[in-house]
């Protein structure tokens, strides 16, 4: 895998003294879809803003295709399209005009045929002469996407693309994203929702409080997240797991009152039936059953604690 954006030791402290990014290191692979997952105020937008040139880094470096974002900002920025989190559009501009403007800003010669196709792909063609203030929120979001794509970037940042977007448009959006990925565009998106990351991304990065806690393949992360625990409360405490049950991934609590079984909900079979059967055969009787699932929150907590 070749990396297209490489971020090293990136920190940002805002004027008020708040440190929004803490020594972030990240390599984004060419052609992948990377989802940045994190709660409000985690630093997702700050990270994107630094890469796109909207916020100055306090320390550290970012290179886009080998071009430093400060020293070689022209070459770095040429390749990037940004869809901001907020719906920032000039109310009185018209759809087609605003695309021409965006394209020109990025130094590309006018190409109305390309822009026409873009608007058609985003189901905005019939709105091409509308004033932006006359569009619905979802349409504005699509105009922002069209603006970001107007100069044919090979990297696209989508900052919370699904905020305030209905199910239908969300589906459309993922279709567009997939199509772009197929054409070789690298896509970085931010989200609060683990399901969203699961649906669309190849890799997932988790950010909390300015720290990039992990970046992992979606598959691995999902396994981690999809893990469940079955807690079996026993009638009588035992001091060790019987040999006949050793094949199960069991853990005995310190007081001997609970058996804890960890399993994968995404796997073909959970092995619970066999476990209960073996327990019965071993003559262990239970008082109660309980299951817990690790949530995103738990993962955050675990990661943050492990980080200390």
């Amino acid at each position: 895998m070749t990396s297209i954006i490489s971020i090293s030791n990136l920190s940002k402290t805002y004027e008020g003294g708040h440190q929004a990014l803490k020594r972030v290191n990240l390599d984004i692979n060419k052609g992948e879809i990377l989802a940045l997952l994190g709660p409000n105020g985690a630093g997702k937008t700050t990270l994107i803003s630094v890469i796109c040139g909207l916020v100055s880094p306090t320390s550290g470096t970012v290179a886009v295709n080998g071009f430093d974002i400060i020293e070689n900002y022209r070459h770095a920025r040429e390749q990037i399209g940004l869809v901001p989190q907020e719906l920032t559009l000039a109310a009185f501009d018209r759809v087609f005009d605003t695309l021409r403007f965006s394209r020109g800003l990025f130094g590309k010669k006018p190409d109305d045929a390309y822009l026409e196709q873009l608007l058609k792909d985003l189901s905005l063609w019939n709105k091409k002469d509308s004033e932006l203030r006359a569009l619905s929120g979802g349409m504005k979001r699509r105009v922002l996407i069209a603006k970001a794509l107007s100069h044919q970037p090979n990297i696209l940042f989508l900052d919370e693309p699904t905020a305030g977007v209905d199910v239908e448009l969300r589906k459309d959006m993922w279709q567009i994203v997939n199509k772009l990925r197929d054409s070789g565009v690298t896509i970085i998106l931010t989200t609060h929702y683990i399901e969203e990351a699961e649906q669309i991304a190849d890799r997932v990065g988790v950010i909390n409080d300015g720290e990039l806690l992990l970046v992992d393949d979606k598959v691995n992360l999902m396994q981690e997240l999809g893990r469940k625990q079955l807690i079996i409360e026993l009638k009588e405490p035992i001091n060790k797991i019987p040999a006949s049950m050793a094949s199960h991934a069991l853990h005995l609590s310190d007081d001997g009152h609970e058996l804890i079984y960890t399993y994968d909900t995404q796997g073909k079979s959970t092995g619970i039936t066999a476990l209960l059967q073996d327990m019965h055969n071993a003559g262990i009787s239970m008082k109660d059953l309980n299951t817990t699932q690790s949530s995103l929150q738990d993962i955050f907590v675990n990661l943050v604690q492990a980080d200390r």
Partner: peptide, 18 residues
């Protein structure tokens, strides 16, 4: 002032422009 006030200046700031 107006692009700055409405936030649309983000586009100019992120463009490859001196």
């Amino acid at each position: 002032f107006f692009p700055k006030f409405s936030g649309t200046v983000y586009e100019v700031m992120s463009a490859p422009i001196s």
